[in-house]
Design a binder for these strands. Structure first.
Length: 581
DNA sequence: AAGGGACGCGCG
DNA sequence: AAAGCGCGCGTCCCTT
């Protein structure tokens, strides 16, 4: 029974959704069913070993929404037991959203329950506690009474949300993301170790004994020592490298690539190549795969909302930084394939939707958004359009980007007014919010003290300059926050919808990784990076999966922006590997 | 010896 | 050609 794949038991839209609150009491797991008004209907007490079976039964019966303190703590053991949950409400993640949201009129009770604020990566803390055999975290938030109390506080806070607030959608999407994060970790990203090794050998030479530089890297280091006439140079030391460059009359202020690229000297190509290979070796070399890849899977730890804007972060293995050159190692299992999809120009389209800028929507519909901006005559080239748009969203003030950005104001005043207003509010120390109501953290006491100091009678020029800079820094942050944060919401909606759609697919005849989790026998999301997903699926379902990915994107757009005509075109590829041709 | 900051670079 | 948002992480190097 336990091994049953619960996902196949979709109860359909008519089944009542109930809240099933999960918490601990006296070494047992307590599940309390609540009705729509959060009134208690039923309470069961289970031995810890019985919980997974309980979840299976309930999923088959009616797929309740599991309310628990922390998905990263409750869900992995279920997945390990072969049990999947359809819906959840993650109290920690939701608390962090609701307690500081500008959309909540009465956040007082939530803010008082500070023990729920938690860190950004409880999963990591729990893993570390297990690793060092320490007692469970000292907080009591997992206790059933505390869990019920927090759930009721959150329901109470949500009932004070402003009319039309998207916070309930955000809480649901955030929680679905937390389920998915645990599932993706369990499933892993299919990784072809042999191909990775082949890339490393081709670039660096044979794997060296531990501690030694690979041959190709040592060759380049030696050439650098000759070209810079510095026989003991360690090119890994920026300080010594800079001194050596200066001795040869190369006037650079740093050893960073963008500055070196502007210098005409024989040492530059050698140095750039050394840096490229050194990076590959230290970030994604043999030591990396020893640590992070096993049994053909790369298993990063995803941290939902690890970024203030709501974007995900990751811990370990640099999951969000896999270099493009190594994507050839991301390779489907035999008989399976990858559906690799990314959204074209997600953030500008999100800005278009949230500002309801009809001109920008018209420019971007059904085509490359930047080409559309060129066609509108705002700027001359696609490259300029991209630069100007990035400048608008990041707050560029100088350079080409800063020069081009004002042109967009004339052509797309609504969209530009939205980011400009967010910047002004940030400069004043005021909060801003995403479409669904995620709100910036407070600017902080130090920031306000800096501003206050500048307006005192005896403020120095330095005080005033410092305050201005801090104010503009904050403005650029809030300007970008509303766009990056709403884009993260779009991505969550996309993921949550896709995750559900994929449960409708049948199990594969040929299992991917027979030892993997049960849900990995059907198409499943194997990777997510801000505006890109990779689905691992049996080849015979690739086309249908690609369609599901597109349908989910369209549904996400409607969920956030209703019938406003902004579209989210995807670049979808069906392939053996994640490498772009 | 451990920890933290600076640097540099990978990703969106 | 480059500076303007959000990250993680490896290395060096200095402090404690």
């Amino acid at each position: 029974m336990r091994a049953a794949d619960t996902a196949s038991a979709d109860p359909g839209p008519l089944a009542p959704i109930t809240w099933a609150v999960v918490g601990d009491h006296d070494q047992r797991v307590v599940v309390v069913d609540l009705d729509a008004d959060a009134g208690e209907r039923r309470r069961v007490s289970l031995a810890p070993g019985e919980f997974a079976d309980h979840v299976v039964q309930r999923e088959l019966a009616s797929a309740p929404r599991w309310v628990w303190d922390d998905t990263a703590r409750r869900y992995p053991p279920l997945l390990a037991a072969g049990v999947r949950a359809a819906r959840s409400h993650d109290l920690r993640l939701s608390h962090r959203i609701l307690a500081c949201s500008a959309d909540i009129a009465a956040p007082g009770a939530l803010r008082a329950a500070a023990e729920w604020e938690g860190g950004p990566s409880p999963a990591v803390a729990v893993a570390a506690a297990t690793l060092f055999d320490l007692a469970a975290p000292t907080d009591t938030t997992g206790d059933i009474a505390a869990t019920l109390a927090e759930f009721r506080r959150q329901r109470g806070a949500l009932s004070t949300a402003r009319a039309g607030s998207g916070l309930h959608l955000l809480a649901a999407a955030e929680s679905a993301g937390a389920l998915l994060a645990a599932e993706m970790h369990a499933a892993g990203l299919p990784w072809d170790q042999a191909r990775h090794d082949a890339v490393l050998e081709a670039e660096l030479g044979a794997r060296p004994p531990s501690g030694a530089r690979p041959s190709q890297l040592e060759l380049l280091a030696q050439r650098l020592r000759e070209q810079l006439d510095d026989p003991t140079l360690n090119p890994d030391s920026a300080v010594r490298l800079l001194r050596a460059l200066h001795r040869r009359g190369i006037a650079v202020e740093s050893t960073s690539r963008w500055e070196l690229e502007r210098v005409e000297h024989e040492v530059v190509p050698t140095l750039l190549e050394y840096k490229r290979l050194a990076r590959l070796w230290s970030a994604n070399g043999w030591a990396w795969s020893d640590e992070w890849v096993s049994a053909g899977r790369f298993r990063p730890v995803y941290i939902p909302a690890g970024v203030v804007t709501g974007r995900w972060a990751s811990a370990g293995g640099g999951a969000l930084q896999i270099p493009r050159g190594l994507r050839s190692a991301v390779r489907a299992d035999p008989g399976w394939c990858l559906v690799v999809a990314d959204v074209a120009q997600l953030e500008p389209r999100v800005l278009c939707g949230m500002s309801r800028d009809a001109a920008l929507a018209e420019a971007s519909r059904g085509r490359d958004l930047y080409e559309g901006i060129v066609a509108d005559g705002a700027v001359a080239t696609r490259y300029d359009a991209k630069l100007a748009m990035l400048g608008a969203m990041y707050g560029a003030t100088t350079g080409e980007s800063g020069r081009l950005m004002p042109r967009l104001r004339r052509t797309y005043p609504r969209a530009m007014a939205m980011v400009d207003a967010a910047a002004r509010r940030g400069e004043d120390g005021a909060p801003v919010s995403t479409s669904w109501g995620r709100t910036t953290p407070d600017a902080g006491a130090t920031w306000r003290a800096t501003q206050a100091r500048a307006s005192e009678a005896d403020a120095s020029t330095a005080d005033i300059l410092r305050a201005k800079r801090a104010s503009r820094d904050r403005g650029r942050f809030t300007r970008n926050f509303i766009v990056q944060g709403t884009a993260a919401e779009w991505a969550l909606a996309w993921l949550a919808d896709l995750r559900t759609r994929l449960t409708a697919f049948p199990e594969a005849a040929t299992a991917a990784a027979a030892s993997g989790p049960v849900f990995a026998r059907r198409p499943h999301i194997a990777f997510f990076l801000h505006d890109e997903v990779i689905v691992h699926c049996p080849r015979e379902h690739a086309e249908e999966v690609a369609e599901a990915v597109r349908d989910a994107a369209a549904a996400a757009g409607r969920l956030l922006f209703g019938d406003f005509p902004v579209d989210f075109p995807l670049d979808v590829r069906i392939a053996e590997s994640a490498q772009k041709d």
